[in-house]
């Protein structure tokens, strides 16, 4: 294991003539919560699929704690993942799904999992086909947080959660960081990113625009003169600034 959780070098993915990800260089350190921001279609999910070895890069490479992303047997010992659109086996109950994912994952902490099931108010005795989008997402989140994998890769994980569950989610992210787990959090919910992330990367149309802490981003924009003087810029204003739209 090296001291870098995620490292990408010139990571590039083309779909035909479409450049979904262009020459991405990124480094995520152990124990940090890394926000991965970008509008729809920016290439966030594409990046994650490359990190997971579920898509092959057109060029460049990615490593997870030093293991090649394509070497799934090794790289996936270090990570847990929550997809953007969680799709479960319809005939398995929530409990059976968690059991399956635990058996096939990098190992779980059963006591913490029981606590998470409680906190996320999961009804585990129903077959997954009766679950709502939010419930499916909660199953995947519990499965991921319950692993003690040193890296959690979460793709817009809170998009289907209600405010109460969103709060539980943020708590779980903070707990993970406190345990020393790194969290790679793709999102376009800016308040969420602002609340939990140590550093953020901003992606647009497959290109990395910026990597900085939230405080650095604020500073950068104040000195660049984009914000009104004398007031803290919100991440939303900064974010919209990157995409060329005026803040409301």
């Amino acid at each position: 294991m090296t001291s870098t959780a995620i490292r990408t070098e010139h990571l590039t993915k083309h779909y035909g003539s479409l450049v979904a990800l262009d020459d991405l260089d990124l480094e995520v350190r152990p124990g940090e919560v890394f926000g991965f921001l970008g509008p729809n279609g920016a290439g966030k999910s594409t990046t994650i699929r490359l990190l997971l070895g579920q898509a092959r890069p057109t060029a460049g490479r990615a490593t997870i704690f030093g293991a090649e992303a394509s070497d799934v047997a090794r790289a996936h010992q270090f990570l847990a993942y929550v997809p953007a659109d969680v799709s479960l086996w319809p005939f398995l109950t929530g409990a059976e799904t968690l059991e399956l994912l635990a058996n096939l994952g990098p190992g779980v902490d059963p006591a913490y999992r029981a606590e998470l099931i409680d906190r996320f108010a999961l009804d585990l005795d129903r077959p997954a086909r009766t679950y709502s989008t939010g419930n499916r997402q909660k199953v995947a989140l519990v499965a991921a947080f319950a692993t003690r994998a040193p890296l959690l890769i979460l793709d817009e994980p809170a998009s289907g959660l209600d405010p109460l569950m969103e709060r539980e989610f943020r708590r779980a992210v903070t707990e993970a960081r406190d345990r020393g787990q790194a969290v790679f959090l793709s999102s376009h919910q800016l308040d969420e990113v602002e609340a939990v992330c140590d550093r953020v990367a901003i992606l647009r149309a497959g290109r990395l625009l910026e990597v900085a802490t939230v405080a650095e981003l604020r500073h950068l924009h104040r000195t660049a003169g984009t914000g009104p003087a004398g007031r803290e810029l919100s991440l939303e204003e900064i974010f919209l600034g990157y995409y060329g739209k005026p803040a409301r």
């Binding site: 579920q54 993942y81 479960l88 994912l101």
Partner: peptide, 18 residues
């Protein structure tokens, strides 16, 4: 069918090669 439905995204996130 499972792959198209997106179930393999979760299954293949574990250390079991595809």
């Amino acid at each position: 069918g499972d792959e198209v439905a997106g179930r393999h995204a979760l299954a293949c996130a574990g250390p079991v090669p595809r």
